[in-house]
Amino acid sequence: MTRLRPPRHRVEHRAVRWWALQSLALFAPLLAIAIATHVFWEAARPWTLVVAAAAAVLLLVGTIVEPWWRYAVHRWEVTDEAVYGLSGWWVREWRVAPISRIQTVDSVRGPFEQMLGLATLRVTTASSQGAIDIVGLDHEVAAEAAEKLRAVTQRTPGDAT
């Protein structure tokens, strides 16, 4: 029987930059729009200052605090029995998926991940909770893990339902 236990491996250190870039891409435009609105639209100045301050706080937290916090939390492991994942920064999700329940294994690489040589290993199971996403892996490590899962699931009896 597979038991819930802490996964052994940390994600790639470059994931910190990836998470920071995601926050930067989300909150920097909001801050820029708020500042531009404050400068060019005099009637909106009372509320644009509040929006700019909130965007600045979110930008700082999202690019400095969140990435390091997530890096401290995120763990993963693939064994012959199960896939283990621990993720989150505000709400932590700790999941284990027995090999016999795996339906698909995918490697996902967005633009920032490609730029940093990272990938997300997505393991879809017969669970109503959805896929286990192991983010922030070196793209070669993700490919090796996907290949290992393909081989292990091929020789594991069961119908993954």
Rank of each mutant, 00 (worst) to 15 (best):
P46G: 12
L137I: 04
L49S: 10
G158E: 09
T156H: 03
G110M: 14
W41T: 13
A151H: 06
W90D: 06
W47I: 13
A56T: 06
L58C: 09
L118T: 03
E144R: 12
V91C: 05
R14G: 01
R10K: 14
P46T: 11
R3W: 00
R17F: 03
A52P: 05
K148W: 02
V83W: 04
A82V: 10
R45W: 08
T63D: 02
V51P: 03
Y71F: 15
H74E: 10
W47R: 08
R150F: 09
P29M: 12
F27D: 05
A55P: 00
A44F: 12
Q154M: 12
L26V: 13
Q154W: 01
T48S: 15
D133Y: 07
T104M: 09
A44T: 15
E12P: 00
W41I: 15
P46K: 11
R14H: 06
E140R: 14
S23K: 08
T124A: 14
R8K: 14
V39A: 10
I134V: 10
W19L: 13
T2P: 12
V105I: 10
I132K: 11
R95K: 12
L30D: 00
V65C: 00
V91W: 07
V61G: 07
V108Y: 00
A53L: 10
E113N: 09
S128N: 08
L60Y: 01
G110K: 14
T48F: 08
